[in-house]
Design a protein around this nucleic acid. Structure first.
Lengths: 251, 251
DNA sequence: CACACATCGATTGTCAACAATGTTAATCCG
DNA sequence: CGGATTAACATTGTTGACAATCGATGTGTG
């Protein structure tokens, strides 16, 4: 079910090195695992490790200075969140989300975030509104200064915080996974002819307005539109998925 | 965040044995892992391994005739679906869902299954309606014959199939997790004074009716009510969670 | 020359011994 | 005798060596 965009089997030595070779290890082996997990995750989400890249265990473990077993655990964790795909006996590769999967992801986000704002509209506090408003202001500032990357990160955090505030840990965890997967989908399918995808409208502000007013229906509607717009900025036409030989050789 | 209902550290030798000691192993080591996974999962969902039970690696691996490493992987997988809790350096125990977690779970199911019926109402086929109707009939028969366990299992399958039919793999996977966790919650919190919780109303039929009619709103509403009723049959009052000493010693 | 088959190197998967940590029980003061 | 300290044990966590598998390359044959 994965888009068959296969990148060459990069051995990413130069790409994401930098580990203190110092053997200053305490009981923080778990810390170390977390660190490796985050580093690889970030590399994937930045497309420093593009979809399809083979993640070989030995080179990677050497780069990070951890044992192969540890790295293996990290790869499994990344597979759990669908950022990498583990093929039995054939190693792990960076996931290539298919169009269908990407659409499903956005549909799922609509469902879950719709529920989140619905819940939140009934229990949001003054302080929370204030926090959200400040986040939006910061976000706008970042965009205004042209700091696209920072702005995007803050946009994402807005959605995360919304989920936390709703106080439903189950939904929050699900959304966390979806929000993490979103950048991979965006980078994989962003339409180069269109403008940079992102939450640089004022939908966030409108959502907070509705939440403050306790207007669940409006909040949900704006959230839906917001996500639909984000999705619409992507180039999610079918083909991609099935290596279309005819098209490739322009027959 | 877990209900502190701690059961004695059962070493479940007699409880779930039975493994072919025959060394008829082929390349099916992964099969074996799946088998152990399912066996433990079923034991948990049946409350043969009640919440709080310690799952020690050596005894369990011996019972199933697998290596400790294999069992360890299984425990991690079970922890991923929240059926067991892994405490660093202190082993794994069967999860004790808290009241809050249980409520969140039902709220999440409402959100996700609401979205599922909404999607499905727009694309359901004749054949699918027929399949669902047959499932409902079978389910009713089971209940009518007093086969409670079978009926419950079929009720659950109904929800699963609905998710599959909607064709959104992301939502389907989320729901799969929630549906799996539900029996644990039910068994942990079922109100012994009330009647056996389950889907033995005809809500399922009403949902299919609405789906067939393409009436998304009604389908979603009935689904909501259906889940709300199931939740209401549980004894989800606060306390449970924080070992209430005063109550225990009736001070 | 195309295709099936065998061999070799590279890579992943498994295991059993070892290390680290937590838990329990005994011991030693105060 | 209560409470802390420490020693012995039980349990989990990690590692490096070994085994199984895959993919590529080369070879033989119709």
């Amino acid at each position: 079910m994965n888009a068959a965009r296969r990148s060459p089997a990069i051995t990413p030595d130069a790409s994401l090195r930098a580990d203190d070779g110092s053997p200053a290890r305490r009981g923080r082996l778990v810390q170390q695992e977390e660190d490796v997990f985050m580093r690889i995750q970030e590399a994937i989400l930045d497309h420093r490790l593009p979809p399809g890249t083979q993640l070989k265990e030995v080179p990677l473990s050497e780069v990070f200075g951890v044992t192969r077993g540890m790295l293996r655990k990290v790869l499994t964790r990344l597979a759990n969140t669908k950022l990498v795909e583990q093929r039995p006996n054939r190693g792990a590769v960076v996931a290539s989300p298919s169009v269908e999967e990407s659409r499903d992801l956005f549909a799922a986000r609509r469902a879950i975030e719709g529920a989140i704002v619905d819940i939140l509209s009934k229990r949001i506090t003054r302080a929370q509104v204030k926090t959200l408003r400040r986040m939006i202001a910061d976000e706008h500032q970042a965009y205004a200064r042209g700091e696209l990357r920072s702005g995007l990160k803050q946009s994402i955090d807005f959605h995360r915080v919304l989920a936390e505030m709703a106080g439903n840990s189950v939904l929050a965890e699900f959304l966390e996974e979806l929000v993490t997967r979103t950048p991979l989908v965006i980078l994989a399918y962003k339409d180069h002819k269109a403008r940079e995808p992102g939450c640089d409208t004022d939908d966030h502000g409108a959502i907070v307005d509705a939440l403050e007013a306790g207007d669940a229906a409006t909040a949900a509607r704006v959230m839906h539109e917001h996500l639909a717009e984000l999705e619409s900025q992507l180039n999610l036409r079918e083909d991609h998925g099935s290596t279309d030989l005819a098209a490739i050789f322009s027959v």
